[in-house]
């Protein structure tokens, strides 16, 4: 768990690295809504499958545990 936390911290630190929030002179017509739309859909598409898998996985585990207790 400790290693995992360190990994998450390192990830957060690295993503914050150079100029993530800096102005972007090279972006094509950077409409804020469009950029947000890409960002939000990317996050939803990424989070959704992981959420579904972990949700269904946990539910199955509970079901299996419950059955094993009653056996």
């Amino acid at each position: 768990m400790r290693r995992l936390k360190a990994l998450a911290l390192a990830l957060a630190a690295l993503t914050a690295f150079p100029g993530f929030a800096s102005a972007c002179p090279m972006c094509f017509d950077p409409s804020a809504e469009n950029r947000m739309a890409f960002l939000v859909t990317a996050m939803v598409l990424t989070a959704l499958p992981l959420g579904m898998v972990s949700g269904v996985g946990l539910w199955l585990r509970r079901r299996i545990r419950k059955r094993d207790r009653t056996d």
């Binding site: 690295f17 150079p18 100029g19 090279m26």
Partner: peptide
């Protein structure tokens, strides 16, 4: 690698 590559990327693609 990340630091090295990100710096070059920043200089070339994010700076005008």
């Amino acid at each position: 690698i990340v630091i090295g590559a990100a710096k070059v990327w920043y200089d070339i693609k994010l700076q005008l």
